[in-house]
Design a protein around this nucleic acid. Structure first.
Length: 447
RNA sequence: GGGGUCGUGGUGUAGCUGGUCUAACACGCUGGCCUGUCACGCCGGAGACCACGGGUUCAAAUCCCGUCGAUCCCGCCA
C-alpha cells in the first residue's frame, strides 16, 4: 500500500499564472490554463488564441507550425494548458501577451456551441439562452451578473456582521403550510405531507429569541402561478430580523445601512463587472425618502389623476410613479412606502398604534420596483392570539411558533430583500430570469 | 387564473395584402487567401421541405381552424 502525500493547493497552483497576472511576469516563461475563448486563424502561420480563466482573458500568439498544428480542429471552449513567454506588446489588450507557446489540450471541443458566447452581445433569446445556460453562463457578460450577485450577498453579510447579527440557516422542508397556505409547494416526505418553505419568517423570529439579531441567505419557494418578468417560483431571499427595536423605523435604519453596505462592497470589488455591464451606481442618500401609504395614494390622485385612495395596495404602475417622484424630488433611486394597510399584511404584523388600520410595516422600492418588505412584528402572545382569531386561524397550526412568544420576546422586526430583484434593478435587466443562474418558473424546471 | 403577441438552417432576423421562395441576410460551422487579429477582412461551401395537424385554393412560409411551444401585460408578490 502506498501512502503518497497529496499535493497541497499551493503546490498545484504554484506554477500556474492567471491571465490577469501577466504584468508580474514580463519576460518570464509561464504556464496558464483555461478555456479557448476565441481562436483566430490568420493565414500562413499566424494564429491568435484568447485564453479565458477565472481572472479574465489574455492573448496568445502562435507562429510555430508545430504549435499551430497542435490546435488543429479545436473549437471555442476547448480547455487548454499553455506554456509560453510573457511579452510586452502595446498592440495587445492589457499590454501583454504570450509568445512562443506550447499547448496541452485538456479537453477538446469539436462541436460548435449552441450560440457564440465570445461576442460582446449574446445573440440568443432568453428561452434559448436558458436552455443552454450551462455553457451560456460562461460568457463574460453573464459571468459579470453573477459576480455582482455574489458581491451583493457578501456586502449584505458584511454589513450585518458589523452590527452584531448572527448568520443562521433554517429548514426549507417544513411540516405545516403556515403563513399563507395557498402559495406553498407540497412534497412527499417519507409518506407524510410536507412543504417547501416560502419564507424563513417564523424561524428567523424564533431565532431573535436566541441571538437578538439574525440573518439568513437562502432560497424561498412560492407556488404562485405568475408569469411576469419580475417573478420566480424559487428565488434567493436576504432575510434579517432583530430584537429590541423602537418600531419599524429602527428596521428601516438598519436596512438603509445594509443597502449602502451592499452597494459599496460592489463598487469596491466589482469595478470590472460594473464597467462591462455599463452599470452606474444608484443614488442612495444618507436617508432614503419615505412616504406614508395613504399619502402616496393621495399624491397619485393629485398628480397622476388616478384615484386609488382606499385601495389596500399599490399597483406596479403606482410604484413606478412613486419611484419617479423619489428620483426627481429627492435624488434617490430608493424610496420607502410605510404603513401598508393591515388587511394586506400577514397576521404577525404590528399595527400602527396611532391608527390600527395601518401597519408598522414598509416596502422599499428600488427604481420603481418592490425590492424589500419589512416591518415590526407582534411580540406578545396575547396579541398573536387575537390576531389569529381575527383572521379565523387556529393556534394549533402555528403552535411551535407561538411557544416563542409565550416565553418572552422583545419588540422586534426585520426585512427580506429579493436578491435577484436587487441585481435586476441594479444592472437594468429586463427579465428577472437573467439574474438567476437556473431560474424556476411555471414552465421551466431544466436545466 | 384572464388578455395580447409570436413560432422560418445551430443562433438572431427578413419574407407573411398567396404566384420564378428552387426561401434571403447576419453570427456560427466549413474549404481557400491574408504575419497583428482582438465583433478582423476577402472569395467559396454545407446547413431550414418555414413548430405540428387539418382546411381554403389551380397554387400556402404567407389566409382560416386546432394543438403544442415561447413571450409580454394584468392579478399576486420579493
Amino acid at each position: 500500500m502506498s501512502c503518497e502525500r497529496p499535493l497541497s493547493y499551493l503546490e498545484v497552483e504554484m506554477d500556474r499564472v492567471l491571465s490577469s497576472e501577466l504584468a508580474l511576469h514580463a519576460g518570464e516563461r509561464v504556464r496558464l490554463a483555461g478555456w479557448m475563448h476565441r481562436i483566430r486563424r490568420l493565414g500562413s502561420g499566424m494564429v491568435f488564441v484568447h485564453l479565458r480563466d477565472r481572472s479574465g482573458i489574455c492573448q496568445i500568439v502562435v507562429e510555430a507550425p508545430e504549435a499551430i498544428a497542435s490546435l488543429d480542429g479545436l473549437l471555442a471552449e476547448s480547455v487548454i494548458e499553455v506554456e509560453g513567454m510573457v511579452a510586452v506588446e502595446p498592440q495587445a489588450a492589457g499590454g501583454f501577451e504570450i509568445h512562443n507557446p506550447t499547448f496541452i489540450v485538456l479537453s477538446a471541443v469539436t462541436d460548435a456551441l449552441p450560440f457564440p458566447i465570445n461576442k460582446p452581445v449574446i445573440n440568443a433569446h432568453l428561452d434559448t439562452f436558458l436552455d443552454h445556460a450551462m455553457v451560456g453562463l460562461r460568457a463574460p457578460s453573464k459571468q459579470a451578473i453573477f459576480r455582482l450577485s455574489a458581491a451583493a450577498a457578501h456586502g449584505f453579510r458584511e454589513a450585518l456582521d458589523a452590527q452584531g447579527f448572527t448568520e443562521v440557516t433554517t429548514p426549507k422542508i417544513i411540516g405545516t403550510a403556515s403563513e399563507s397556505g395557498a402559495n406553498v409547494f407540497a412534497i412527499d416526505y417519507f409518506g407524510r405531507q410536507a412543504y417547501l418553505a416560502q419564507s424563513p419568517q417564523f424561524y428567523k423570529q424564533i431565532m431573535v429569541g436566541v441571538f437578538e439579531r439574525v440573518y439568513e441567505i437562502g432560497p424561498v419557494f412560492r407556488a404562485e402561478p405568475h408569469q411576469t418578468v419580475r417573478h420566480l417560483n424559487e428565488y434567493v431571499s436576504l432575510d434579517a430580523e432583530m430584537g429590541f427595536i423602537k418600531d419599524h423605523t429602527t428596521v428601516m435604519a438598519v436596512l438603509m445601512d445594509v443597502i449602502r453596505g451592499m452597494l459599496s462592497y460592489m463598487a469596491g470589488h466589482c469595478s470590472r463587472e460594473l464597467e462591462l455591464l455599463h452599470v452606474g451606481m444608484p443614488l442612495a442618500p444618507e436617508v432614503f425618502p419615505h412616504v406614508y401609504f395613504p399619502d402616496a395614494q393621495q399624491w397619485i390622485y393629485e398628480h397622476k389623476g388616478e384615484d386609488c385612495r382606499g385601495e389596500p395596495d399599490l399597483a406596479p404602475q403606482h410604484e413606478k410613479w412613486i419611484g419617479e417622484w423619489a428620483k426627481e424630488v429627492h435624488d434617490s433611486d430608493f424610496v420607502f412606502v410605510t404603513g401598508y394597510p393591515m388587511v394586506k399584511r400577514p397576521f404577525y404584523t404590528a399595527p400602527n398604534p396611532k391608527d390600527p388600520r395601518y401597519s408598522n410595516s414598509f416596502d422599499l422600492l428600488f427604481r420603481g420596483t418592490e425590492l424589500v418588505t419589512g416591518g415590526q412584528r407582534l411580540n406578545r402572545f396575547d396579541d398573536y392570539a387575537r390576531a389569529l382569531e381575527a383572521r379565523g386561524m387556529t393556534q394549533d397550526a402555528v403552535a411551535g411558533y407561538l411557544e416563542t412568544f409565550r416565553f418572552g420576546m422583545p419588540p422586534h422586526g426585520g426585512f427580506a430583500i429579493g436578491l435577484e430583484r436587487f441585481v435586476m434593478q441594479l444592472v437594468g435587466l429586463t427579465n428577472l430570469r437573467e439574474a438567476a443562474l437556473f431560474p424556476r418558473d411555471m414552465e421551466r424546471l431544466q436545466p
